[in-house]
């Protein structure tokens, strides 16, 4: 078996929360991510879905090096990305980059497009003006902008164009992995399609691997190869996009899919799975959570395990 591009093993992230006790000494630990493991293959789009507070963003920040994990290992091509022996920001920058959700907050208002794109190149040792210009020009064309637009400032662009600039900045150092944090949810509907198409085109053209963080399951179904469903810091179901969308098994996955306000589903309720239907026990074992009640985030979750129920299709069950 070939080595995965990115390997995450038993990732835990806990935050100390001040409070309690007279002098604020009673620190509690917020369990944000509880033992996430997955791997990402070259050219793959892996989506992490879940609702606010499920730990999907914390997981992404850990991969980007913006959040140090409490436990666990993240490896890029076999090399550790965290803990001792982790590379500096400079090396990591060429491995993983990120496209942000809000195109209005993700560009420095005081920097022109050219400056935003040229500065990282210079930082990484590309100093020849002609090469910098060439790469900026090529990258702007890649994302559907014109080289003439490079001298403009962010406020001169629409939301969709800003997102294209954000994508260009993420790709300028030619990373292999791009983390997409809700890449289209802040955009107008008609612009979303353009950005989704662009991301899929770039993935194919540049052989990129995506980790997409999203709560929008229609977009996830459209773009992903594999899907991780997270609920309060744990993966509750994992599988190929077909398995997740055609045979969702965990109650929470079913609930998420049933909740999508999809016009077709809303207007033709035939064949819609009733999310309220009682789930049968799976091979005599029960699910830890039905994805309704919010667990206590200050205690470690009850022991459970991901059980393989199909080819690469896993679901979280209580310990037998």
């Amino acid at each position: 078996m070939t080595q995965p591009l990115l390997q995450v093993d038993d990732l835990h992230v806990r935050f100390p929360i001040a409070g309690g006790g007279l002098l604020g000494t009673g620190k509690r630990m917020l369990h944000a991510v509880n033992g996430i493991s997955f791997s990402l293959a070259k050219g793959e789009c892996l989506s992490i879905v879940g609702e606010s507070g499920c730990g999907k963003s914390t997981t992404a920040l850990s991969i980007l090096g913006l959040q140090e994990p409490t436990e666990g290992a993240i490896r890029y091509r076999g090399q550790p990305l965290n803990g001792p022996g982790a590379p500096g920001r400079m090396q990591r920058a060429k491995a993983v980059q990120m496209v942000f959700q809000d195109p209005y907050a993700s560009l420095n208002p005081r920097q022109s497009v050219r400056t935003s794109l040229a500065a990282p190149l210079r930082l990484h040792g590309i100093t020849a003006a002609s090469e910098i210009e060439g790469r900026i020009e090529a990258m702007l064309k890649n994302v559907g902008l014109t080289p003439e637009q490079a001298k403009r400032y962010p406020h001169e662009f629409s939301g969709g164009q800003r997102q294209r600039i954000g994508i260009a900045r993420a790709l300028i150092l030619e990373p292999e992995i791009v983390v997409l944090d809700e890449p289209v949810s802040a955009l107008d509907v008609s612009i979303r399609a353009q950005i989704i198409n662009l991301l899929l085109d770039l993935q194919e053209k540049l052989g990129l691997s995506y980790i997409m963080i999203s709560h929008d399951l229609s977009v996830v179904e459209h773009m992903s190869d594999r899907v991780l469903v997270m609920f309060f810091g744990e993966v509750v179901e994992e599988g190929g996009w077909r398995q997740i969308f055609e045979a969702p098994t965990h109650p929470y996955t079913r609930r998420l899919i049933a909740a999508i306000p999809d016009p077709d589903v809303a207007l033709k309720p035939v064949g819609r799975q009733d999310e309220r239907a009682e789930m049968p026990l799976l091979a005599g074992r029960r699910f830890v959570s039905d994805g309704r009640a919010s667990p206590d985030v200050f205690t470690p979750p009850a022991p459970s395990e991901l059980v393989e129920i199909g080819a690469n299709h896993k679901v979280r069950l209580a310990m037998a």
Binding site: V189, S190, R192, A193, Q194, I196, N197, L200, L217, S218, V219, E221, H222, W241, R242, F245, E246, I257, I260, D262, P263, D264, V265
Partner: peptide, 17 residues
């Protein structure tokens, strides 16, 4: 047409939005 529809990929494969 700009909206990815749930289930459409299963039925028709991934179509360009």
């Amino acid at each position: 047409g700009a909206l990815p529809r749930l289930g459409s990929r299963s039925e028709h494969g991934r179509q360009r939005l």
